[in-house]
Design a binder for these strands. Structure first.
Ligand SMILES: [Zn+2]
Ligand SMILES: [Zn+2]
Ligand SMILES: [Zn+2]
Ligand SMILES: [Zn+2]
Lengths: 133, 133
DNA sequence: TACAATTATGTAATGTTATTACATATGTTG
DNA sequence: CAACATATGTAATAACATTACATAATTGTA
């Protein structure tokens, strides 16, 4: 009941956990956080994550095997192209952004070779301004 | 003895397997392929992979949890910036490329925010020209 | 050569991430 | 209600990766 309707109970619980977190969470960490809400098995988490990914409400960070709430929930964040992430290796903070030029360059490359893109991952691992200081 | 010197026996075996493969391989698949060469445990593979990554002879594909031989081995492929991959979801074929403009755009973004990049992942999953036809 | 230091290897056990299979429940539609 | 689709609960297993500890090979140097 904390977020957007059209979500089932489990989906809403998982999304809530991700929204309240300031760093990406693995499926098993989410599971632990939801034990008190009746979660018992990984599949309960993975099923909710799958639906939330479909709806564009969360993202999977491939280089971390972890998940974050979309930083632009509600709007067209993911409808205007590929999303990129800058991920701090020290504090775990994630910045989500979008760059049209990058999108276009990658689209040009694939188009020139007849490659049909389905999903693009851009993840920059490093140190955020605070942690690098 | 099949490839570049300065490699140990295990490193050379693992690199050989990756070079002969036309698709990315997981660590456990590599292990299976090297049973006849005395490999018994995952760690033998992971240790060799770590060293090969350090030397820039292979790449890890984060979205697949798998590894490929560098397409530009020998030269400065990885010294001239971030490498990107187009990965076919149907046949597994991987194309490795580099785009200066993409690099610069991402560098501009991070620099503007004081983020210090350490490793950047760019992976485009989709269908190669052959498979999309 | 002898020795110490470093690097590489072998093996077992364990930890982490993700899926398959099957049963039950809930909601929607005609 | 019946039929269908969607969501959930649970157990077991598969796939990916690391820790811990012991041994061997290599390298540098007194
Ligand atoms: Zn988003
Ligand atoms: Zn940080
Ligand atoms: Zn390369
Ligand atoms: Zn293909």
């Amino acid at each position: 009941m904390t977020s957007t309707p059209t979500l089932t109970k489990n989906q809403d619980l998982v999304l809530g956990v991700l929204k309240r977190s300031d760093a990406p969470l693995s499926a098993y960490v989410i599971l632990d956080k939801l034990r008190d809400n009746g979660f018992r098995a990984p599949l309960q988490v993975y099923r909710a994550l799958d639906k939330l990914l479909e709806k564009g409400l969360i993202h999977r960070l491939e280089s971390l095997n972890a998940f974050v709430a979309c930083a632009h929930s509600g709007e067209s964040c993911c409808s205007h192209g590929t999303v990129a992430f800058a991920i701090c290796n020290a504090c775990g903070h994630v910045m989500e952004f979008h760059d049209h030029t990058v999108d276009h360059r990658l689209a040009d490359w694939t188009k020139a070779r007849g490659f049909k893109p389905e999903k693009t991952t851009i993840e920059i691992r490093g140190l955020c301004a605070s942690c690098a200081a």
